[in-house]
Amino acid sequence: MLHKVRKQAILILLVIVAIIAGCVQKKEPPVSSDIIAKFFATTEELSSLIKQKDIVVIDARSAEDFQKLHIQNAVNIPKSQFREPKALNEILKYKSENGFFIPPAMAEKILGNAGIDANTRVIVYDSITFPDASIIWALLKYYGHDNVQVLKGGFEKWVSEGRSVSSMPSKIQKKSFVAKPRIEMVASREWLIKNRENVIILDMRSFDEYVGVNPAGNPRGGHLPGAVSLDWTHLAGNETVKSPAEIQAILAEAGVTKNKEVVAYCNIGFGRSTYGMMVLSMLGYNARVYGGSFEDWSNADDLEVATTKIGSFKDWRQ
């Protein structure tokens, strides 16, 4: 009898220990420098690689900035190319239905014209932080090209280190880029409606846009119901990106965990949202981007947009 009680006691204790072990929050392991190196190239690294034939350096800044000065032999792909007025209707339809910001034919043309094929190593930069560089990163990743990194510190760091720059047009040898979409990287409107209860929706826009006081050109201001606000600038700080430990702390405060898939969105589906997806992917989160983003959601009249009730504040003297 005594043995039986002891056995039961030990069994119950084991169960309790298992429950505690399951409930205690696991601290995220540090992100190794190898993983960070997969996402970022240093200025020293680019400097040593720049004359190699199988490297293409993409300047993701505006055409105006590029024309003034750029890294030698860099090719300019400004984000304005993804909102060409002539193709805008086609783009909007595609991104709403497919969850990515440009159709494959357009991607093949832009990337092929930039001299990228399946064997090309791509290093992309913008000014210092990298929302615009993340667009090219996401574009290549989504269409099946993994060999891409963002230049840490961007053009500003490159210039501050006295490295060579040019204002001359670059010589580009066009290549054939074959787009192979990875649909697991994106969320369409339909997908999001089906799955929104099971994912963390992350709003990478400013808090003003999230609350709804700044509709940013959309018919309705606010955010997707249930979305968590995380202004992308909080992740960038004054550098290209904050340290993994700092980002993990910010994500934890926002309630973003690794046990759920994360869908990042911004206003038009590239830039701030692709930045979020890249940072989350670097830290090992399972992340998608909602290519349609708030522009798509806000224009669908049958979908609810959440806002903070303006004017619900009451002066206690009244």
Binding site: D208, Y210, V211, S229, H234, E253
Partner: peptide
């Protein structure tokens, strides 16, 4: 009038972001 985002600790809020409302 604002919406303030932060972590509440008793009677303090550790502020992370702010949006100014109308009025």
């Amino acid at each position: 009038q604002v919406v303030l985002k932060g972590i509440i600790k008793g009677n303090k809020i550790m502020a992370n972001d702010i949006a100014v409302l109308g009025g």
